[in-house]
């Protein structure tokens, strides 16, 4: 799922080649685990099948058959934007998704703080709900489990706050990746 949105995010900056997309992915998200070229191409063909990206006429076509250039379609942009705008449900593996969204929002020249703020309200709403349940229960086991969830949500929120404070720095870093 991330692979699709990543490629759409990259392509929202302008048309590009599969090989370049892989390089971008690895430098931003592939720290421990570079993405396989096969996965890039299968993701691209799935996106093409669904009408989210399309091949473009390429002036440098002479470079060889494997160098196909792709661009994002209106449908692809819409799909990507919807993913970006929708706050994520709280879950233990959210860190990566939040990081992906911040980076991809910045890469597509959007205000990443908007995403962070709506995500933040959604997290606090969840925390408010849990706090309410905890206030109303007499059961210690339930209380302890809720404590734990609340502290996980708090960790996400702290991360969002720091990411917010570091957003300009991150934007500059990403400009270097683009160049």
């Amino acid at each position: 799922m991330h692979a699709q949105n990543c490629l759409l995010g990259f392509l929202s900056q302008g048309p590009n080649y599969g090989y370049e997309l892989k390089k971008m992915y690895d430098s931003l998200f592939g720290r421990d685990k570079p993405i396989l070229p096969g996965q890039i191409y299968s993701t691209l063909s799935r996106l093409e099948r669904d009408g989210k990206v399309e091949e473009v006429e390429d002036a440098e076509k002479s470079a060889g058959p494997s160098r196909v250039k792709y661009q994002i379609t209106g449908k692809g942009s819409e799909y990507f934007q919807k993913w970006l705008d929708e706050p994520e449900k709280v879950n233990p593996h959210l860190q990566t998704t939040m990081y992906f969204k911040v980076v991809l929002a910045l890469m597509s020249n959007q205000d990443a703080t908007k995403f962070l703020d709506s995500q933040r309200h959604s997290h606090i709403a969840e925390m408010r709900q849990l706090t309410k349940v905890r206030n109303e229960t007499d059961d210690l086991a339930t209380t302890l489990l809720i404590d734990n969830t609340i502290f996980h949500i708090e960790a996400d929120l702290r991360w969002m706050e720091l990411a917010h404070s570091r957003i300009n720095q991150l934007r500059e870093e990403l400009c270097k990746t683009k160049a």
């Binding site: 997290h123 606090i124 925390m127 408010r128 849990l130 706090t131 609340i150 502290f151 949500i153 708090e154 929120l157 702290r158």
Partner: peptide, 8 residues
């Protein structure tokens, strides 16, 4: 503190 704001 978000844990306190959650009471609001």
């Amino acid at each position: 503190e978000p844990t306190i704001a959650a009471y609001a």
